[in-house]
């Protein structure tokens, strides 16, 4: 399983890539593997304000429904439309083609509170 060094991570198994005031968000390799085959993704509309810690979408596998939580607050700039018709991309490319949303951060400093790859790996080692 991969956990790129350049990303930040949450306890709810989202990843965040910060690009100045923008943050790209998806779910981790560990999350997609635990879910199994992803068959449905529900994402917010562009322009929606997301509050850190609140659910902003849903990812469903054959067997399970899972909320996706906003790692940081901000306004949705862009969503990954490809996931609507091909949600399985989340399984095959969780960090790249499987990105979910791009938000404009309310406070760019929020990302500093998230885990780095090492801390996240320690967390999932505990969970599994």
């Amino acid at each position: 399983m991969e956990f790129p060094e350049e990303l930040k991570y949450t306890e709810e198994h989202e990843w965040v890539m910060v690009e100045e005031e923008l943050a790209v968000i998806g779910i981790t390799d560990f999350a997609q593997d635990s879910l199994g085959d992803v068959v449905f993704v529900e994402l917010p509309e562009v322009g929606t304000f997301l509050e850190a810690g609140k659910a902003f979408g849903v990812v469903e596998s054959v067997k399970a429904v899972s909320d996706i939580y906003a790692p940081i607050s901000g306004t949705v700039e862009e969503i990954n439309d490809d996931l609507v018709d091909a949600p399985e991309i989340i399984n095959t490319s969780p960090y790249e083609d499987g990105w979910m949303i791009k938000i404009r951060m309310a406070d760019a400093g929020d990302a500093d509170n998230l885990m780095d790859a090492e801390a996240y790996q320690a967390l999932i080692a505990e969970e599994s």
Binding site: G36, D37, V62, K63
Partner: peptide
């Protein structure tokens, strides 16, 4: 066993 390689496959 709930799955080996993946439910859809």
């Amino acid at each position: 066993p709930v799955q080996y390689s993946g439910v859809i496959e």
